[in-house]
Simulated assay, not measured.
Amino acid sequence: MTLTIVAGARPNFIKIAPIIKALQDKKKTGFTIDFRLVHTGQHYDKNLSDSFFEELNIPQPHINLDVKSGTQAQQTAAIMIAFEKELIENPSDLVMVVGDVTSTMACTIVAKKAGIDVAHVEAGIRSGDMSMPEEINRIVTDSLSDYFFTTSAYANDNLKRLGIPDERIFFVGNVMIDTLTNHMSHFKKPSFFDKHHLKKGGYFVMTLHRPSNVDEAQQLKRLVSKIISLSKGFPVVFPVHPRTKKHLQELNLTFDNLHYVEPQSYLRFNYLVKNAFAVITDSGGITEETTVMNIPCITLRHNTERPETCTIGTNMLVGDDPKKIENAFKILWAGNWKQGEKPQLWDGKAAERIVEHLTTLYSP
């Protein structure tokens, strides 16, 4: 069996790491499987890509398509052109895509037009929000894929409603949690931790990158100012996404307890999360990690493709509503935040299950 694994952005790297390890372990048992790792170059900042390969023991990609940034259409087209050439030069039995970034959708389209099967890891999740580019990526990818590896019963149900037969849906758990479980003991304290006098349970971590929160200057200013006003002087550590940095520079937003830092590597960022009082974010993946680490998470979104983080985990959706944000902080400061539980099969073994299914599907 020849497998092509596609990774393009930070969340992808976190998800492919345990899958590659499980493939390498399976190969040692005698199963004939060769994989080719393709990095599309969608994320090209060192802290958003290269460091993840180093820290998570991911082998260097066989090729980097080096597409970099552009409009949605430009980036999608560049990935498709480069990936088509890659598949012509290196034929594959199966293309595996992960998550919901532009690379996921673009490489799925190319593979299917080339007559190659596609397996989608983290299939079936939906926010219902068509203003999110990721939602469009999910819908297109799932409409074309052949095999669906899912994280939750919610995702399974979404796929079944699309008419996907049960025998093509594999409920395996969450590979992001595999990586978290495998590396939690290796988290690294960032160099600025002591400089900013951070103490365990005595600071907030904040991340913002969604266009609805950061692209309009006054909206970004309102959100950041509101959070600072509710923080009671606790340090707020803000790793600034490249998308957000430009807008913050224009606003010149400064507060004594607000600390802007560079994007962090996986091990350093999760050290911050694990030791935080709470996290404020608009990311989907971070809500999964906070759920497993039992850290309160306030999400500045009106919807989520990961509802289990709210129903079972530690996540609360507040959107950009000042009253909802205030209420979340009121609960937090009162010590009444809900205690999270791990969703079903978020046990660190999802990648092993994926590889077992591949073994069955592609046994000679």
Rank of each mutant, 00 (worst) to 15 (best):
F255H: 11
S212C: 11
L253I: 14
R222W: 04
R222S: 15
D256L: 12
V279H: 03
E250I: 06
H197V: 09
K226A: 14
D215N: 15
P211V: 08
K195G: 11
Y266R: 00
E250H: 09
Q264F: 01
E250A: 15
L267T: 02
G201E: 06
K199M: 13
V214H: 08
H197I: 07
P211A: 15
E288S: 03
L267W: 01
M206P: 08
V214Q: 11
D282K: 00
T207D: 07
N252A: 15
N270L: 08
T287M: 13
K188G: 12
K245N: 13
F277M: 13
L208E: 09
F269G: 09
K221I: 00
N270S: 08
V237N: 06
Q249A: 15
Y266H: 02
G201A: 09
A217T: 06
V224R: 04
E289F: 03
Q219D: 10
T244E: 06
D194R: 00
H247S: 14
G202C: 11
L223W: 00
V214N: 10
G233T: 09
F255N: 02
A278T: 01
Y203M: 05
P263F: 08
M206N: 10
H196W: 07
K189I: 08
R210W: 09
K226P: 03
V237Y: 02
F193P: 02
S212V: 13
G233D: 08
F193R: 02
L220K: 01
Y260Q: 15
V261K: 01
L230Y: 07
K226F: 05
P242H: 10
I227Q: 02
L267E: 03
T281I: 04
A217H: 10
R222E: 15
Q218A: 12
K189L: 10
V236R: 07
G202F: 02
K226Q: 15
K246V: 13
T287S: 14
T254F: 11
Y271S: 04
S191F: 09
T287W: 00
P211K: 10
S225T: 14
F234P: 01
K245P: 09
V240C: 11
Y260R: 12
E289N: 06
R268V: 01
F234Y: 13
A278H: 01
